[in-house]
Amino acid sequence: MAGRASVWNDPVVRDLTTAFVPATDESWRLQTSDDRQARAFRMIVDGRPDPVGGSRQGTYVLTPGGELLARGNSTDPRKIEGILRRGLEAWSALADEARSRPVPMDLLPEHRFEESFPEDGLVLEAIIQDRPGVEADARGRRWNIDHAWFSAAEVEAWWKAIEPTIGRPRPVPAPPAMLDRLVRYHLVDNARGQEAPFAPEEVREAGLTATVLPEEDASEPGRLRVDLEGRTAAETDGRWRMGRNLWASFNRGERPRGVETELLGYAEFERETGRVVSFRLIAFGETWGGSGLNGRRHAPTDAEGRLPRSPVAWRFVEGGRRGVHRVPPAFIDLYGPPWVGPAPSP
C-alpha cells in the first residue's frame, strides 16, 4: 500500500511511465488461481504454471508478447526507476519481431469479475481513512479505496420501497441485501491495509433508512432526493465463519476485531427510471483489533483487556464507469447473488 504514494507519486517515475503502457492487476489471483491467464503469468515470471507461494507483488516490464524484461518490488522510487530504465534498455535491444509478437491467447482470462460490472446498477467508490484530525502513526496517514456494486434489480427494489412514500415521507429501511453487503463487506477496517469481512452472525446492528425530501430539495427537476441515516455494528472473536475461500487465511490466530459506524448522507433518484444518479454517504466509525494487514493487530489492550478504538471514516460516492473504475469490489467473490457470476476455487 505504501508504494502507491512513495513510488507512483514520484515525478521521475511518473514521467518514465509515459514510455510504457501502464497496467495494474491483482497478484494473489495470478500466483494462485487455476485460471488460464494465471497459469500463463506464472510461466512468464516463474517458468512453470503451478501455483506459487510467497509474493509476486511488484513491478514488471514485459513485451506485449509476454517476454519478461525486468522485475522487482520496492517502495523506494529510485529502485523502481532503476527497474523501469533496465526494462527500457532491454526493450531497445530487442529486434522488431520480438517487440511486435502478438499477445498470447493464454494471457486472456477465462473469468474475471470485471465481467459482472453492473452496467445499469449502482457503482460506488468507497474511500476509507483514519478520520481527519487523528494523528498519523509511524507509517504515515493511510487511506484505501474499494468499489461497492449493486445490480439494477437491487436498486429497483430500493426505489420500489421508497416510491410509495413520495408526499408521505417516513424512513424507509434499505433492502436487506444492500445493507448486508454494505455492513459485512464495505464497512471493514481497510484504512491501513486489507482486513477480512464479517459473517452474517457477526453483525450486531444494521440500519439504514431513506426519507424522501420535498420536491424542491432535488438538484434538478425530474429527480427525487432522499436523506440517508443509519447505524451499524459488527464484531468477531476472530473465528472464521465464512467457509473455504480466498479470505479464510485472514483470521489465522483468531484475533478479535470490530467496527461501529453512524451513517449520514443522501441520494438522488431519477424519477422516471428509478435509477440512482447521485449518492453521498459518510460513515463515521470506530474500529478495533485486526486479523491481518490493517496495522492494528499489535495494539496493546488496556487493563480490562479491551483493544484500543481507532476513529475511521468512509465516504461512498457514485463512481465512474470506465477503465480503472471497473475494478471489482475486494470481496466480490463473497457477494453471493447470481448476477456476480461464479467464484474461483480457493
Partner: peptide, 11 residues
C-alpha cells in the same frame, strides 16, 4: 513495452 504493477488486492 508493458509496465505491470501488481499487488495483493488490486492496486
Amino acid at each position: 513495452p508493458l509496465l505491470l504493477w501488481l499487488m495483493n488486492g488490486h492496486p
